[in-house]
Design a binder for these strands. Structure first.
Length: 317
DNA sequence: GCGTCCAGGTCTACC
DNA sequence: GGTAGACCTGGACGC
């Protein structure tokens, strides 16, 4: 699908703000789609807005202390003034440009475990998904599968049901829409995307979204516990998935991250990481309170430095 | 090459 | 309200 440039604007994030660390994280996680391209200070990526695929070229023109982002928008259709404004607002939310990290950094400086995780990652913002359905696809495909298999399922979903967006001399592959998945049979998703038992859940989620469900922008305006409960009402979305998707990020401990936080918080590797999740969540809540979401992202993106300081390899789990 | 095990959770039935 | 057991499937591993 060919897209043409329809709009551009500038965002001025609250300092400190490091664009590369925010959208192209050291641990390898993407901002909107695994297929987005990052070169020097520019990200070519995509989203879907009002059911229309949108291409984005976002360039950092500033520094961590004086940040400035130049955004170019590509679409098949012209955007009216109201849509342009809403899209700008959505991007500002998803790029966390209004989010001030200073209070968090002051808190982290007093914490023995975390005191230097911000050295490598100064200006890194956490996770605020542009669109809800892709975040839910990620959560569903991560369930009960090694990362290699999760990647396989996501790749096949994009290959068979996603969109190839061509703009600005780049091609970016983007996630399928809820409408597309809702109109696909469970059997077909099992066969083509190798989703196994998850196919039933993904179709149910797509149907619920199609029938009317709060967008990520809507969820971000809700109290985080209310947003989490809304997400957990979706079929196949439990506490872990809801905490990964919810605005502001919860503390989505799974077996992998539980091993890491077990060493950090309990000073030992738990015999049964799944069993330890409840204890670890309580410990983390007690220690880090409202900052647990940020702590989660900072720790998992700073494992080499933490490993060196603790003398334990946290990167091998 | 073949068999077995189990993974970056969630739901349901049963107590 | 707490919990064992089932759930798809493919890759890792042992033989």
């Amino acid at each position: 699908m060919q897209l043409k440039k329809v709009n551009s604007f500038v965002l001025k994030p609250v300092s400190p703000y490091n664009f590369e660390l925010t959208v192209h994280k050291p641990a390898g996680w993407w901002w909107s789609t695994p297929d987005e391209k990052f070169e020097k200070d520019t990200l070519w990526t995509a989203t879907r807005f009002n059911d229309e695929p949108i291409g984005l070229r976002i360039t950092s023109r500033g520094t961590t202390l004086e940040p400035q982002l130049e955004c170019a928008v590509f679409s098949q259709k012209r955007l009216d003034d109201s849509t342009r404004l809403k899209l700008k607002h959505m991007l500002s939310r998803a790029l966390e440009t209004e989010d001030d990290l200073k209070e968090f950094y002051a808190f982290v400086a007093r914490d023995n475990i975390l005191r230097d995780v911000t050295l490598d990652l100064c200006g890194m913002h956490t996770v605020a998904w542009p669109e809800l359905f892709p975040a839910l696809i990620l959560a569903v495909t991560l369930q009960m599968a090694p990362i290699k298999r999760s990647n396989q399922m996501m790749d096949l979903l994009m290959e068979h049901y996603g969109e190839n967006l061509e703009f600005d001399a780049k091609t970016v592959r983007y996630w399928p829409s809820p409408k597309k998945i809702a109109s696909t049979s469970v059997e077909e998703l099992q066969a083509k995307a190798k989703l196994g038992y998850r196919a039933k859940n993904l179709v149910a989620i797509a149907n619920t979204l199609e029938a009317g469900f709060p967008s990520m922008d809507d969820l971000s305006l809700m109290d985080s516990n209310v947003a989490k409960k809304k997400l957990m009402a979706l079929r196949g979305i439990g506490e872990y998935s809801a905490e990964m998707v919810m605005p502001g990020m919860g503390f989505p401990l799974d077996v992998w991250s539980a091993k890491i936080f077990s060493i950090l918080l309990l000073d030992k590797l738990s015999d049964d990481p799944r069993e330890a999740i409840t204890i670890l969540k309580k410990e983390a809540d007690k220690r880090w309170g409202k900052w647990v979401g940020r702590v989660f992202v900072y720790v998992l993106n700073d494992l080499p430095r933490l490993s060196k300081r603790l003398g334990t390899d946290l990167t091998s789990f």
